[in-house]
């Protein structure tokens, strides 16, 4: 999958799940703020990424994913190409 295609797909699934517009999602924006995540909805994010891309985010890896750009990089490095 091309990187831009991945970015578009990530944005679409996040927008749908968390009821925001894809235009609200900026690469350097902090995910928790843009999507208004608390600890309960963070679980939904991890479950969504796993079910959509088959990429698991371990607890120890969560703190390194702050912005959407971090998330794109994380998934891109791990998806089957």
């Amino acid at each position: 999958m091309e990187k831009q295609e991945l970015i578009n797909q990530v944005n679409e699934v996040l927008a749908e799940e968390f009821e925001v517009e894809t235009s609200d999602i900026a690469p350097d924006a902090v995910i928790k703020e843009t999507l208004q995540l608390d600890s309960l909805s963070l679980v939904d994010l991890v479950a969504l990424i796993e079910s959509t891309f088959s990429v698991k985010i371990q607890n120890s890896e969560l703190s390194s994913i702050k912005t959407f750009a971090d998330l794109y990089e994380f998934i891109y490095a791990r998806i089957a190409k």
Binding site: S39, L40, L42, V43, D44, V46, A47, E50, I57, N59, L62
Partner: peptide
């Protein structure tokens, strides 16, 4: 169990 994130089990 579907997922465990921090101290929350889904």
């Amino acid at each position: 169990v579907q997922s465990v994130v921090m101290n929350i089990t889904l």
